[in-house]
Amino acid sequence: MPDMTPAPRRRPLWRLFIAPALLLVVAAAWSAFWFYAASEVGVRADAWAAQEAKAGRVYACGKRSVAGFPFRFEVRCDDASVSLVSQTAGAQVPFTARLGEIMVIAQIYQPKLLIAEFKAPATLADRGQPPSMKVNWTTGRSSVSGLPDIPQRASIVFDNPSIDRVNAQVATPLARAGHIELHGRLADGSTRDKPVIEAVLQITGGSVQEVHPILAAPFDADIQTKLTGLKDFTPKPWPERFRELQAAGGHVEIVRSRIQQGDLISVAAGTLSLNTQGRIDGELQMTVTGLERVIPALGLEKMLEEGVPQATLDRVAPGVKSQDLNNLFGALDKAIPGLGRVVKQNANAGVAAGINSLGKEAELEGRKARAFPLRFVDGAVFLGPLKVGQVPPLF
């Protein structure tokens, strides 16, 4: 009996090439999109730099390149620099910072998040002068989310940052830290209309030289602030922005501040603002443990050597005149050299008692403490009747 089974029909070979062809088309389209977007990076960066230059911040990039194909963009800037003009009150001295390399990364699937990495070191110098400061770190990175429309959050983190003053080949330490983090977010409003900014600064193992002796020893800090009164985020010089902030009745609220330096712990909260002269006014309510350590660190001994403030004597020793006391110290030194200095040093205990009398007893983290106000009056910083610092005007 003959075999009646029909022969199988052959499928057209062209169908086998549909999937590879589609894949090739998609890959070509994706490549075209990536390279077009990569070409736009330079255009956008130049437009942003031109806008910043109008505000006195001139950014430059010695060599720019784009990589990361196919799923992300890696924009590398070698020999980066920024020159700052008209960013501080008073004399306007052009200032230039240089950085070896910055790399900015954006993922295709997460285009509103930018991550940047900074390569150390960086140098700071007045324009036309050799570097006066050198900044170093082991890891430096930042992130901004919400771009390109409205930035919602931004962070910058440094591990083991250090700042040295450079004079010829000699480097003098100015600041050190084990770790620094600064986080900011848009709490209310928008970048175009009355933004309210919340920020958190965290410092671990920080120390600062040549500012105040109390900052020379290592300390940890955790500070949360809230800034209101900004008009917008339009690029402009900082003095102009501060002036605008003052005119709008803006202020900085210290929501939480905790600083620890060995046994000394300080917490504070309050509000600071600017007056019409660009100086800081306001008051912080502080609670401090180990206040006895602050007395010599604030240089009160030097105050006593130069003359005891009458306001202090009125609190510590009512009825005693400052001139009479200074004459007494001089007479003691004439009779027995050095005796007046010993008496002045012992008088620090009286000053401490005077400061304690300004506040009230409190408890902080299970330890005895004192609570008192820290006042800012026209830029001067007062711990009770004693002036312990001066902040320069911001515009």
Rank of each mutant, 00 (worst) to 15 (best):
Q277A: 11
P392M: 05
D149P: 00
A199R: 12
L325A: 04
P195L: 10
R76C: 09
L84N: 04
P392Y: 02
A217S: 15
G128E: 08
P235K: 04
G262T: 09
G354C: 01
S31N: 08
A297L: 15
F382E: 07
F219A: 08
A347F: 14
Q224H: 09
Q110T: 09
A60V: 11
D159N: 15
G140A: 08
D333E: 15
Q152C: 01
A248T: 14
P309N: 07
A67M: 05
P309M: 08
G68K: 06
W238P: 02
S162D: 14
T312S: 08
V388E: 00
L325S: 00
V342D: 12
G206Y: 03
R141P: 04
T172A: 06
L284T: 06
S257L: 14
N326P: 01
L272S: 01
A217P: 02
G100Q: 14
V316A: 10
R192N: 13
D3W: 06
I265Q: 11
D193W: 11
G68S: 03
F382W: 13
D126V: 09
A268G: 03
I214M: 15
P131T: 11
V252P: 05
S142V: 07
A116W: 04
A171T: 12
V41G: 04
V58C: 06
L291C: 11
I102K: 08
A269D: 11
N275C: 07
L147F: 14
I156H: 05
L16S: 11
A199S: 15
N275K: 02
M103R: 15
